[in-house]
Design a protein around this nucleic acid. Structure first.
Lengths: 340, 340
DNA sequence: ATGAAAGCGCTAACAC
DNA sequence: GTGTTAGCGCTTTCAT
């Protein structure tokens, strides 16, 4: 391999130096048990001496595996990175993968052009499997990847109901729980800051809110609904819009954690007491709301568990123990925090 | 390639279907001009019919290129993702790369173990080059990558002064300018929230602050210096510590944008008027401070330009027009914002 | 336990 | 313009 002028050593050079055959070197490299201690030792020292590193391409060409997994992020909003939910996922994913000497790479696809590019890259065989997150309705990637037969796991139920492995929480139930909690607290004019309605989590949480209302016999009032696009800034903007339109609101269900932080700030700036004349429940994607001030009652989503499950489903496919698409739905739970 | 049970088509199958030889198909795939229109057409339709995708490993094995570039983020603090500076860089990087049909992948190395893993992955030949950012003093990656002879560009001058291609801004000058501005505004008890002092940007900006003080004949007072670790939360914490320790401070130079947002919040919570009894200048990594309230006077760092330059230097190396390590230093400029 | 040999899918000379 | 051929560096039967 000629990089920077010098050619990097090959198996044969190691073999020659070690005084054994290519095959033996290969066995040593791959930890085969069928190697004598002497040969093993000779190879190891030759490897060290030559600073030998196996050529990935040559190896993958025959083994048909790359030992790398991709996390692809299909999101036009660069803000995603800003979402702590994302950082948590990366952390947990690489922690899970570190047991398996597989590497994790991140790919971002911000528009259709990039989606196609990522799709092509994956189909060319760069990775053994992909975890796909942050899906919007018109996303090309699920289709592209599914037809490429690459092991694939989605975070969140596919919007089109296709049969793909995925892990999700029951977002609707979570949102309904949150709304019911507000109802039980005596609130009647319960607003909501929704997520993007072209994302399944946004759709489901909004549906849960409506169900919570309906279960309590409360009407759905349009002026109490505003989209906050899952970002902190969006949450603040949405909250301000709601306050303007319906100053009489006495509670709000916020469909994500960063949005809750923004909404809280907007409420604070508007001089509304929380949870004095207004109660807030947030949907906790990332365990951040816990640190907010005032403390926020949240519906907690077990992100780490979900991530763990995604890796599990993916590796099962990669390892070939795959059969049908598998689905895991995790529970959410309401975390009521002491409100000053 | 057996993924999901089906074998994906090879060049030969395409060749057979198109009624030409492997070589011709290869030429068509690689846009060689030496192909007759008829042959080209036949190949294209065979490719479409078979849904042929070239095998990356086979191709790379001979071409010794992967057409992918890595952005590696060497940072233990998961907060990095949260920094808008990071999102901007990813955006700009992939924009620049999209002209070149090269793909961008992100790798995160949060501890020494992961650094070694990433180093190994890169040395195996997965990528044609790497952009390395967020370097700390004890980072293994610069060493590992340099000795692997992979084209490499750093964001920021290497702490150990090694000869590596990199692009940077004159952070010290920027910080000195910021401090001088505060001096010119009549401030005398100028505090600073520094970045991590094991990162070059932190070191340089702190040095610039000291120079600014010295140029004005002002003493360096230790109680006016606090580390904010480049995060928003850290900035807030540092600001609180400063206020506690030196309530008489009348200005503060904050060494990064997210920290400035945090510091502003802390100041606000403490009831200190900005910029009434205290003036703030921040170091603007990501053009976000512009949206802060109150508007912040900043030293702007041309991140997009820097990113563009990194890609330029890297591609020059990848393309083999490399010679010696190249260095680019960008200017910073003071942006004075109307302060209410 | 070890070596010889075949071949993964592709590109790149080299002939024609 | 097109086909033939020789590898790229590795893993993996198959003998021994």
């Amino acid at each position: 391999m000629t990089i920077g002028g010098r050619t990097s050593p090959t198996l044969d050079e190691v073999a020659e130096l070690a005084g054994v055959s290519r095959a033996t070197v290969s066995r040593v490299i791959n930890d085969s048990p069928r190697v004598s201690p002497e040969a093993r030792e000779a190879v190891h020292s030759a490897v060290a001496q030559l600073r030998y590193v196996p050529n990935r391409m040559a190896r993958s060409l025959v083994t048909r595996r790359t030992d790398t997994i991709a996390l692809v992020l299909s999101e036009s909003n660069s803000q995603v990175f800003t979402d702590p939910f994302f950082a948590s996922m990366v952390r947990e994913l690489s922690a899970r993968l570190s047991d398996t000497d597989r590497a994790l790479v991140l790919l971002a696809a911000r528009d259709r052009g990039e989606q196609e590019k990522v799709g092509r890259w994956v189909r060319q065989g760069h990775v053994d499997g992909v975890v796909l997150v942050s899906l919007h309705r018109d996303d090309l990637l699920p289709g592209l990847l599914r037809e490429s037969n690459v092991p694939l796991v989605l975070l969140g139920r596919p919007l089109d109901g296709a049969a793909v492995s995925h892990v999700d929480t029951d977002n609707a139930a979570g949102a309904a729980t949150a709304t019911a909690y507000l109802v039980a607290a005596g609130r009647r004019r319960i607003a909501t800051v929704t997520g993007p309605l072209d994302m399944i989590a946004g759709v489901d949480r909004y549906a849960g809110y409506r169900r919570g209302l309906a279960d309590a016999g409360l009407p759905l009032r349009e002026e109490l609904v505003e989209d906050g696009d899952f970002t902190e800034a969006g949450g603040a903007r949405a909250m301000r819009a709601l306050l303007e339109r319906a100053p009489d609101l006495d509670a709000v269900f916020v469909a994500s954690d960063p949005m809750a932080v923004g909404a809280l700030r907007a409420l604070h700036d508007a001089g509304r007491t929380v949870p004095g004349d207004v109660a807030v429940v947030g949907f906790d994607d990332a365990v951040v709301a816990a640190t907010s001030d005032p403390p926020l009652t949240t519906v907690a989503q077990p992100l780490d568990e979900m991530t763990r499950l995604m890796v599990e489903l993916l590796l099962r496919q990669v390892e070939g123990d795959a059969d049908e698409p598998e689905v895991r739905i995790c529970d959410t739970r309401l975390v009521v925090r002491a409100s000053a």
